[in-house]
Design a protein around this nucleic acid. Structure first.
Lengths: 227, 227
DNA sequence: GCACCCTCATGAAAATACTGATCGTCGAAG
DNA sequence: CTTCGACGATCAGTATTTTCATGAGGGTGC
């Protein structure tokens, strides 16, 4: 899950980035409306968190531009205490929720999780399952065949992506941009290495392998066909 | 399921009413203690949410009157962060649980559901248990394996959070916002230090450790897997 | 003065990235 | 059908970076 934060105050922005990334999200941070809009237009975010008070292009203009260009990702906006009209305006423009500053990080996290869950048609569960492999998003735990497996943060993020889109072949460039915050830089093999480590934990010692390489295309996680 | 909210601040009350009714509860709202008590005495509520700071008849008096007249419905009360005595007092008077302001709506909802699920079960509800570790909210005491452990206020608050959400990995920023009132402060390591002190009291000298670090993600309290 | 809780500095450990070598697989050509 | 070449995948070992634990020092409030 990838989140864009648009917040001009560096300290707040940095803190939000840090906190959300501990909570398992991939986070980009833009310092003003123009940059924010630019990034958001790439369309690769699952959620945008938008401060309304921004120098230059303000929060509504960003939101408006996004919606006008057909981008439908959820938007959570941050507004000042007594600006009640703000929230009405924001919701009219198509925001999904708002938070009044100052807010607690716990509150933000709860909202973010609610919004992201909402999209997935009623699936209240925090557990992803493929065959006998389970990944619990909230507890941040993974198990296969009931046996607990401990993963590092990157491994967890990678597996989460593979499981969310299981059955789908994911190109390396996609993996690079979702799990790492990099645009594919061909002279590194971080991904191969990460896949290898993940395989060691997930597939080694199991008859049925779940992670498969698709030559020239990428990787896919799926339970093999029955015969 | 019918809930009564007693809250004098209109904005908060309205917010709670709205949220809970969206969640599928039937909700009544009283603006002061007298009205609240009056409504509650009709005895048709499954839960009462009670702000302790009320003009006129305060939360305690309402709670006390209810219990004295034999009404046993669960009561969840709302208290300020620094009023530790309030929490004890409330539990002593027969409330079922409390929530510290400011809280997130998600938190409230979770607490409400827990209380309604378990029904009214008196003082048992004031003790949190994980493995051989016990935390008594009412007496503000902690023990492990029957041996008493004395904690400071911060340590107690931290442990309470960890125990309430045991099994869940808690990001530092979440901990910071819940236990401290630090919402956007990143350059501090209070949490590491507090965890260390807590570990010294909870885990040192025990074979099974309950507090675990999850690198890059946060901390979790849980009993290790059995094999 | 005594708890308590914060900050700071430092070292250790873990996670991650990089390097370069080897291995496998696929397709083209014989 | 077989062989060979090339590209990508895999792997181990090492370097680097990030994160965490820890002990000490100092301030604050009761």
């Amino acid at each position: 899950m990838k989140i864009l934060i648009v917040e001009d105050e560096p300290k707040t922005g940095e803190y939000l980035r840090q906190g959300l990334s501990e909570a398992g999200f991939v986070v980009d941070l833009a310092q003003d409306g123009t940059d924010g809009l630019h990034l958001a237009l790439q369309g690769e975010y699952d959620l945008v968190i938008l401060d309304v008070m921004l120098p230059g292009l303000d929060g509504w203009q960003v939101l408006q531009s996004l919606r006008r260009r057909g981008l439908q990702m959820p938007v959570l906006f941050l507004t000042a205490r007594d600006q009640v009209e703000d929230r009405v305006k924001g919701l009219e423009l198509g925001a999904d929720d708002y938070l009044v500053k100052p807010f607690s990080f716990a509150e933000l996290l709860a909202r973010v999780r609610t919004i992201l869950r909402r999209g997935r048609s009623g699936n209240e569960s925090t557990v992803l399952r493929v065959a006998d492999l389970e990944l619990d998003l909230l507890r941040r735990r993974v198990s296969r065949g009931g046996r607990r497996i401990s993963l590092t943060a990157k491994e967890f993020g990678l597996l989460e992506l593979l499981m969310r889109r299981h059955g789908e072949v994911l190109p390396r460039s996609l993996i690079a941009s979702q799990v790492w915050d990099m645009n594919f830089d061909s002279d590194t093999n971080v991904i191969e290495v990460a896949i290898r480590r993940l395989r060691a934990k997930i597939d080694d010692g199991h008859e049925v392998k779940l992670i498969h390489t698709v030559r020239g295309m990428g990787y896919v996680l799926e339970a093999p066909e029955e015969h």
